[in-house]
Write a protein that binds this DNA or RNA. Structure first.
Lengths: 178, 178
DNA sequence: TTTACGCCCATAAATACCCATGTTATCCCA
DNA sequence: TGGGATAACATGGGTATTTATGGGCGTAAA
């Protein structure tokens, strides 16, 4: 199914680069990404190559994904009439905030200033798989979010009365393997 | 897919020139633009070369694009009956203010007075990708626009994003489903 | 002439590209 | 089954291109 799964934490180096977790890279490649070196024919930033990133609308995180994500965005706009003011306005938020980041020969991207500040990133980034896309978080911020997410799940369980499994507290962290 | 994506802010120099962001240039070239020097054979301003620009109908901005944009405008008109009043009006609105700007050997254009005042441009221009076309804004004006655009998307998301997915707070972010 | 524009060159900074290294997980073979 | 050889990854850093931007100059238009 090629979904983004699991979480990984990588380091931002002095040049602002981060390695994309290898499993995510594999998903991106299967999703139609062709890498500059070591993968396939080069692709310029605006033509199918690169990953699509934009600031999450309601979280201090960056959303990222490949072609599939891009098509999803297109889908949102496809219903609107060309040249309507409404379409322009939505396009601003949907396309205007997107950055296309190239993956270098070593599987790394450079996070632009704007995105980095939105997510409060400094030296570490936590990549979180969410299926069709993934998110990049400041590790501590993500830990907090994860915690609250668990609590919500707990509540839901109570509502449904499913005693069931466990909320395994020691989930996967760095390098869950693929 | 060759879409205009992302935003860039460039400077207007003493001669009124602005660099077109390199990624946009790449889209334009693939879209059928041939540059005077360093790109391909020269093209006169009225024959496929140059970018199409006109004042946005409902915003203090300039719309710009390449061949695809021109064809889309044609498409809109062809949907209307010949000689209808509506068509005439639209033709004037869409074609009347169009300017074809040449890109110089260094990837720059000169913004004519009329367009500059319409958008309130002085020393900086923000290029905003909107898919098939892009817009040029005065940076501060664009900031305001971006803000309102984001709010609108939030609303839309509520309407769309009810694919009934999950209780997972991090699941659907921007556009739950296409 | 005077102004505006196209064309060329120069340069600093940002970006892409390339290779090297430390570490860890994997595999093979005795 | 233990241990060394191997391969995959994340990470660091050097170097070559690309890009944005400033300015000079000749030519064409007014």
């Amino acid at each position: 199914m090629d979904r983004f799964v699991s979480t990984f934490t990588n380091k931002i180096d002095a040049k602002g680069r981060v390695s994309i977790p290898a499993p995510f890279r594999a998903v991106l490649e299967r999703d139609g990404y062709s890498q500059g070196t070591g993968g396939g024919p080069p692709a310029s930033a605006q033509s199918g190559g690169g990953i699509y990133c934009y600031p999450s609308l309601d979280a201090a995180a960056i959303d990222g994904g490949g072609e599939r994500l891009a098509q999803k965005i297109d889908g949102l706009l496809s219903g609107l009439a060309d040249y309507s003011d409404e379409r322009d306005e939505l396009s601003v938020a949907l396309y205007g905030d997107v950055q296309i980041l190239n993956i270098d020969g070593d599987g790394r991207i450079v996070l632009p200033e704007g995105l980095r500040t939105h997510a409060g990133l400094t030296t570490l980034v936590t990549f979180v798989g969410l299926g069709d896309k993934f998110q990049m978080w400041e590790p501590k911020a993500f830990e907090a979010r994860r915690k609250s997410a668990r609590e919500k799940v707990q509540e839901h369980r109570k509502l449904f009365g499913q005693g069931g499994r466990s909320a395994n507290p020691s989930d996967d962290e760095r390098g869950g393997s693929a």
